[in-house]
């Protein structure tokens, strides 16, 4: 096995296997760092949600912790004014593309956005941005679950699960820029796609876009 190194997170000394990504070391030791797109089993972190920033001692700019391998003597702070600002902006950008309505959301108890807001003292409210109001489009063609794209944060967890764990390949990213979305081949409904309705993608969904029908 790989060598153990000792690092410091927020002044706490922690031993961890060398090369492990900082985000997982922190989370496993009960130190919360906001994250969405990261999945531990994924070989290459996509680093696209821009939420898991930390301040590394000796580096001027904050670094995404999902892409930072731990090395001996690494010293990081999970909060700094710079980090907080970046996280706040990323959070607001995500929120502007997320249909709120937590009262009726199936994920209201386990929502990653609400967790982030609570941990970092962020408001579930837009300050600088207008909400992107897409028409609400819910694909409830599968028997057991449904997909509400207006709640999707494009974290890509379901896409990765669908392709690499379930080995189905029904879901993927389509379009570009503001039209980017989690879709299927020819934008067919899930029932018409190769989807086997295995349901593996439901649990990882951080925002209640994919949900079991009975949990609603």
């Amino acid at each position: 096995m790989s060598k153990q190194v000792s690092i410091s997170i927020d002044g706490r000394t922690i031993t961890a296997p060398e090369g492990e990504k900082l985000l997982w070391v922190a989370l496993e030791n009960g130190i919360y760092i906001p994250n969405l797109c990261a999945m531990k089993e994924k070989s290459h972190p996509s680093g696209s949600c821009r939420l898991c920033y930390v301040q590394v001692e000796g580096r001027a700019e904050p670094v995404t912790s999902c892409t930072l391998p731990v090395t001996e003597g690494l010293s990081v702070q999970t909060r700094s004014p710079q980090v907080d600002r970046l996280v706040k902006s990323a959070f607001e950008l995500l929120l502007s593309n997320h249909r709120l309505g937590c009262g009726r959301c199936p994920r209201r108890k386990t929502c990653e956005l609400l967790k982030m807001a609570k941990e970092r003292g962020l408001k579930m409210k837009l300050f600088h941005l207008e909400p992107l109001e897409w028409p609400v489009e819910i694909d409830d063609s599968p028997k057991t679950f449904a997909f509400d794209r207006s709640r999707c944060l494009l974290c890509g967890r379901c896409v990765w699960i669908c392709q690499e764990v379930a080995k189905v390949g029904a879901l993927g990213f389509t379009g570009r820029g503001i039209d980017r979305r989690v879709g299927t081949f020819q934008e067919l409904s899930l029932a018409e796609s190769p989807c086997t309705e295995c349901g593996l993608c439901i649990d990882p969904c951080p925002s209640g876009a994919l949900y079991f029908k009975e949990s609603k």
Partner: peptide
């Protein structure tokens, strides 16, 4: 590869 990946690329560019 999944057909959706080909479609995703074709809609990206």
């Amino acid at each position: 590869i999944p057909a959706v990946d080909v479609f995703g690329l074709a809609t990206f560019y």
